[in-house]
Simulated assay, not measured.
Amino acid sequence: MKFSRVGISECSSLQCSYSTQCTTKNETCCAYILKHFLVFLDGFFRSHNLTYVVIYGSLLGAVRDHTIIPWTHDIDVGYFNSTYLHSNEIRNELYENGYHLFEAIGMSRICVRKNNSITNWLTTQIVHRKSPTVMGDLSAYIDLYTAAKNATNPISNISIYTIQTNDNFLTPISFEKMVEIDGQTFPTVDNVHEHLVYNYGNRYMTEISDRTM
């Protein structure tokens, strides 16, 4: 099936829980869906030689609890090849895998598409017939933040980027730094502590907040 150039209305409205008691192992939880989202995205990006890093709230959950934050709605990643990601090839392949790449509120996002072909881990979820019309209608999705190269450190030869929404904060990324989520490692920024302090304050390890980007 070819990708249809429509927006959020092509997404499924999934019913899942944001309870603070939720885990990525409970099939009724949104965190469960988001973990599978991330695992799929990691494999998909690698198969296409697309680089990405886990950032913002997803990095916060990984550092603080080594898992997905139970009450978050999304996975946050920074990506580096906008032209290829938005090609018809990638969009169609995502669509055929049960996902939908769309634009909303000034950025790219991925959701589970309507009438999706995902049968191995989404079988317990209730998919409503009514199409979503605003971001608040979506229970679980991926936020894709563009990363633009700003400079290269002449000593370490590590590239330095700015990530969408953080234009005043420079982020060194060597693509070698990893973070653990549920026992699996994913690439992230080099300056993890500084990244989290900048976005969530210096009490990010203990202060509970719903401001997870």
Rank of each mutant, 00 (worst) to 15 (best):
V112L: 15
C29E: 06
H66G: 11
M107E: 15
N81M: 06
V192L: 07
I142V: 15
H36I: 00
T206R: 04
L85Y: 01
T51L: 14
L144W: 03
L138W: 04
L85V: 08
A147V: 06
K114R: 10
V54K: 06
V63E: 13
K177C: 00
L59S: 05
S174M: 07
I105H: 14
L60R: 08
T23I: 05
H128A: 12
W71D: 09
V179S: 09
L144V: 04
T188V: 02
E93K: 13
I142T: 10
P70R: 02
S9P: 04
F102E: 13
A31V: 03
H193I: 10
R91A: 13
T20L: 15
E89F: 04
N115W: 07
Y79P: 01
D190T: 00
L34S: 05
P172E: 02
F186P: 04
N49D: 15
P187T: 05
V53K: 03
Q15C: 08
E89Q: 14
N92G: 04
L14N: 07
E207Y: 14
Y56C: 07
L59C: 05
N150F: 11
L138P: 01
C11N: 02
N92Q: 10
N150M: 06
T133E: 15
S9E: 15
F37S: 04
K35R: 08
Q184K: 10
K177P: 01
D76V: 02
Y198I: 00
I208R: 12
R64G: 04
G98T: 04
F45W: 05
N88Y: 14
L144Y: 07
Y145W: 09
S17T: 08
E207Q: 14
L34F: 04
Y204V: 07
H48S: 08
V63P: 00
G57D: 05
N166W: 09
R113C: 07
F80Y: 13
A31F: 03
V53H: 09
Y18A: 03
K149E: 15
Y145M: 09
S87M: 04
D76I: 01
V54Q: 02
I160M: 09
R129N: 14
D190R: 00
I118E: 06
T185Q: 15
S174Y: 00
I110A: 05
Y84A: 03
H195N: 11
S174A: 08
L144A: 05
I8H: 12
N166G: 10
C111S: 11
T67D: 12
T152G: 10
R64Y: 02
E96A: 12
I90E: 07
Q184G: 00
D210M: 08
H73L: 08
T28L: 12
K35W: 02
R46E: 15
S19T: 11
G61C: 08
T72S: 10
T152Q: 12
E96L: 11
I55T: 12
D210G: 01
L50G: 06
S4V: 14
K25N: 14
D167P: 00
T67W: 03
V54M: 08
I8M: 09
K114S: 09
T206M: 05
V39P: 10
F169I: 05
V39K: 14
D167H: 07
S139I: 00
